[in-house]
Amino acid sequence: MFTVASLLVVAAMATTLVRAVRGPTPYDRILAVNVHGTMTVLLIALGGFLTDRPDFLDLSLVYALLNFVGTLAALRFFRHGHLGEEP
């Protein structure tokens, strides 16, 4: 059953990539990549159950945190052109 769920999630991930490539606005792309990241979190967790290695859940947790920070960083970089103080 984890295989079926994983395949469906992979199909959904491929679909979000279409939106990320097509845009048209940069915000559409960032939103699509954020959703893609949420799906990746779940896919990593499903992968842990598929291969019977619960350690994958830790990776999944870290990816959830990184996905959030990455989205904010991408937005900030797009708006200001840099990530912190003006160089």
């Binding site: 469906l8 999630v9 199909a11 991930m13 915000y27 699509a32």
Partner: peptide
């Protein structure tokens, strides 16, 4: 599991189908 994965697929479909940025947020 299948219901959740289907919801993800439908959400991804919505990301493609819905007409503008603000409606895509809901997907």
């Amino acid at each position: 599991l299948v219901g959740g994965a289907l919801l993800m697929t439908i959400g991804a479909l919505g990301l493609i189908r819905l007409p503008d940025f603000f409606t895509r947020l809901h997907a």
